[in-house]
Simulated assay, not measured.
Amino acid sequence: MSARPLIAVPVLLTGAAVAVSLGMLGTYYWPGTNPLPTWGFSGPEAFKAYLSSLVLLLICGQLLTAVWIYRWRAGRVVHLYHRLAGTVAFALSLPVAFYCLYTFGFRFGANAETRTIVHSIAGCVFYGAFASKMLTLRLRNTPGWLLPVLGGLVFGSFVLAWALASFWWFDNFGFGR
């Protein structure tokens, strides 16, 4: 057995450590204990919904350019867009995560809705998968399947978190708030 698949173990453990750490941090801060500014929106939920929707658009571009890069010969412009869109998407996701952790906390237990539990887990998985993906890009000799799997996990976990929070918020409260 070659050492190549074994490189995936510390990469995946790093991502798991990030995800678990965020979940533990989120349990420390209970909802409403740390009010944050709403930046002109009607509340933190509206701020999160709109900002995370912008991130969703950027990561959809990420998905398309990733497929382009892996399936066909992509030029420098595609690679540059992919990196730039990923950097901007990650940077814009940080205030959303900050609001999730410090205003709403990690929701779990008997009193929590299934939607909010899954949303909390998906958000933690997003950052854990992102950490693993970035580490994979910097390491040599990683298995060929690892980067696409982690990229898919980053995309899928963000879409799930967005659907359970932002889409739900738009569906229940509309776009005008």
Rank of each mutant, 00 (worst) to 15 (best):
H79Q: 07
H79N: 04
H79R: 12
L80I: 00
Y81M: 13
H82S: 05
R83Y: 06
R83C: 00
L84R: 14
L84D: 00
A85Q: 12
A85T: 10
A85R: 05
G86N: 08
A91I: 11
L92E: 05
S93G: 08
L94G: 07
A97Q: 08
L101T: 11
Y102V: 04
T103P: 00
F104Y: 15
F104W: 14
G105H: 06
G105F: 06
G105L: 04
G105Y: 05
F106S: 02
F106L: 04
R107D: 03
F108C: 00
G109M: 08
G109T: 09
A110K: 12
A110S: 10
N111K: 13
A112T: 07
T114Q: 09
T114D: 06
R115L: 14
I117R: 09
V118G: 02
I121M: 09
G123L: 07
C124T: 14
V125R: 05
F126P: 00
Y127N: 01
G128P: 04
A129F: 08
A129N: 05
A131D: 07
K133R: 15
M134Y: 12
L135I: 11
L137I: 06
R138K: 15
L139D: 02
R140I: 00
N141K: 14
T142Q: 11
T142Y: 02
T142E: 01
P143W: 13
G144K: 12
G144H: 07
L147M: 14
L147W: 13
P148T: 10
V149R: 13
G151V: 02
G151A: 14
L153S: 13
V154M: 11
F155W: 12
G156F: 10
F158A: 03
F158P: 02
F158D: 03
V159H: 09
A161C: 12
A163Y: 11
L164F: 06
L164T: 02
A165M: 13
A165K: 03
A165L: 13
S166R: 05
F167D: 02
